[in-house]
């Protein structure tokens, strides 16, 4: 934020020089690298989150990350480690509770209380760490400053491990997500799969939090894959499409945040939400228009985003 205020960097309407100027700062290059890693990982894990309707679990895990990050800062460790430690621990705890993470039912008062208490703990750590009150916004709403080389390596290693595990369990997980009872009847370990997936979700949430902050993880974890799933019913298309949307949203958000005084969390959420709304509108138009043609949902109308746009036009 202070960079733009100092007048060091003004948008010149020449994209080539603008990007050159922006990438002449090592922290900006790191932010783009980290953003790419995080966007791809979040879209991959988020694809299953949307499919399994576990958005509420993602929200809870992200809230848990806030006291983790502020606690890490309080004891003098990089906030990234705090996110990982708390999000992964919370994922294990949620996985142990039967029926938790769904967001409805009688325990909603309990979940609400636990969320508020964890946020209050984070606030306590921030208050105890004197002179850091401005930093609370960065932890809650994201920041692209302060991502070092070591952090990028850590993010990349975690992302590779998570993606490898996801690739290994992808097929049975997809089956178990779409039809848990049939999957269980075919002797698939449905319960173990959901535990593994929650741990992967914890890692992905911890990564996404480092760009979007604890409160805006939806922007990378849920919105891009949800947009992609609206545009295509086929997994082979919507999975990479979600990664592409996530990457575009993150890099555009970082660029916009660099050239304006506004925080990166605002831009990433706005771009991601705009993509989601456009996709919904395109889908509605496609179904309304294509009602006479091939039936929607069979894969014939929505193969690629271009197909949807053509159908809408």
């Amino acid at each position: 934020m202070p960079l733009a205020d100092a007048g060091l960097t003004a948008w010149s309407w020449n994209p080539l020089t603008d990007i050159q100027v922006m990438w002449s700062y090592p922290f900006m290059v790191n932010a783009f690298r980290a953003g790419a890693v995080i966007a791809v990982l979040s879209a991959a894990v988020g694809w299953f989150v949307v499919l399994r309707r576990q958005t509420f679990a993602a929200h809870t895990l992200a809230v848990v990350g806030f006291p983790g990050a502020s606690g890490a800062v309080l004891v003098g460790v990089a906030s990234g480690y705090g996110y990982f430690a708390f999000c992964l621990a919370a994922a294990v705890v949620i996985a142990m509770l039967p029926g938790a993470g769904q967001g409805h039912g009688e325990e909603s008062a309990l979940i609400g209380t636990v969320q508020a208490f964890l946020l209050a703990c984070g606030f306590l750590f921030v208050a105890l760490y004197k002179g850091f009150l401005g930093g609370v916004d960065a932890l809650l709403f994201g920041s692209f400053l302060g991502i070092g080389d070591g952090q990028v390596v850590l993010l990349a290693v975690v992302a590779v491990v998570v993606l490898a595990v996801l690739a290994a369990v992808g097929r049975p997980l997809l089956f178990a997500s779409v039809d848990p009872s049939v999957a269980a009847a075919r002797a698939l370990p449905v319960r173990a799969l959901s535990v593994v997936f929650l741990v992967l979700l914890g890692a992905a949430t911890a990564e996404a939090s480092q760009i979007t902050g604890s409160l805006l993880v939806f922007a990378l974890l849920v919105m891009p894959p949800a947009t992609a799933q609206l545009l295509s019913p086929r997994a082979a298309v919507s999975l990479p499409l979600g990664m592409l949307i996530g990457l575009a949203v993150t890099w555009l958000g970082l660029t916009a945040a660099y050239y304006s005084p506004y925080p990166v969390g605002f831009f990433v959420t706005t771009f991601a939400f705009a993509a989601y709304v456009l996709a919904r509108a395109a889908r509605t138009a496609a179904t309304a228009f294509g009602a006479r043609g091939p039936r929607p949902g069979t894969g014939a109308t929505g193969g690629t985003p271009h197909a949807v746009e053509e159908a809408a036009a």
């Binding site: 967001g103 916004d137 409160l215 922007a219 005084p261 959420t269 706005t270």
Partner: peptide, 25 residues
């Protein structure tokens, strides 16, 4: 659906951060 509602509220929160920066700067 929870995806639509969650996304809308996440965006509203993002808008809040925008206003916060607008106010403080």
């Amino acid at each position: 659906d929870d995806v639509a509602i969650g996304s809308a509220f996440a965006w509203i929160l993002g808008l809040g951060v925008f206003f916060l920066t607008l106010y403080t700067t």
